[in-house]
Write a protein that binds this DNA or RNA. Structure first.
Lengths: 138, 138
DNA sequence: CAGGATCCTCGTCGATACTG
DNA sequence: CAGTATCGACGAGGATCCTG
């Protein structure tokens, strides 16, 4: 088949590295938001992303900027204004992320359901098996 | 434009929830591997994934199973044999993940480069600005 | 408004040892 | 082989306060 262990290792490394950034929840959010809205200010992002702390948003943006995915434009005004946008590379990432996004909203319900099924079964099994305790105490 | 804040919030929630699972490095790896190879045993996955601990692989597989993305088949033999595969929903996830995978290997180099550029600039700025210290100490 | 600095907590993960 | 159980270390991340 099409599986070469060597190339697999290399891809694995690249994925591993890239995933450390883009696999991050907030990064995906930021790229998604910027991909949809073009350009946003710090507090606009903060409001839209819902749950992100100021610290995390700052760090996320810095990392994305460092990786060449996000541009940071400072307007020397008062009050200060900083706008964030996607670089060309960032825009190419928006494609895959959108796919992921679509997948999420499409299958979210199914996942929630699968979880409750799994949990119900797990609980049932746990309840049906107090034997361990009985033996241990007997 | 096509941005509705309300639907955004909902999607944000769904993404947030889903990303907690699939945004996880190991989960992506596992789904990727299973997507490519069809079905794999525990230690096969462990060997292929390169760096995952036995504990993390177990947890990852349990979570994926719980979310209805991975099947777990136990063969009552000795020595024990357990095979993992993707569910139908899991297979649909393999698409988006493959996109991400491809993107990773395609842009990995550019990212590494962007980082070193950024770091070089950051270092230069830090070196060019000992004024703070000078003022503070003067 | 946009962030830097700090503290502190909670969860994550790896290592290890044991089981069926 | 395929796990479970436990512990300890570490770092991510939130809360808070402060600056330009």
């Amino acid at each position: 088949m099409s599986l070469h262990d060597t190339s697999k290792s290399v891809n694995c490394h690249a994925m591993s590295d890239v995933l450390n950034r883009i696999g991050d929840k907030w990064s995906v959010m930021v790229v998604g938001m910027l991909g949809r809205n073009g350009t946003l200010r710090f507090n606009e992002l903060k409001r839209m992303i819902n749950g992100v702390s100021q610290r995390m948003l700052t760090l996320t943006l810095r990392n994305l900027e460092r990786d060449g995915l996000v541009t940071r434009t400072i307007y020397p005004e008062v009050p200060p204004r900083v706008e964030y946008g996607l670089t060309e590379m960032g825009k190419t990432l928006d494609g895959p992320i959108s796919k992921l996004w679509d997948w999420s909203s499409e299958h979210h319900t199914a996942i929630i359901e699968a979880r409750s099924v799994y949990d119900a079964r797990a609980t049932a099994v746990a309840a049906a098996e107090p034997r361990k305790v009985a033996y241990a105490q007997g």
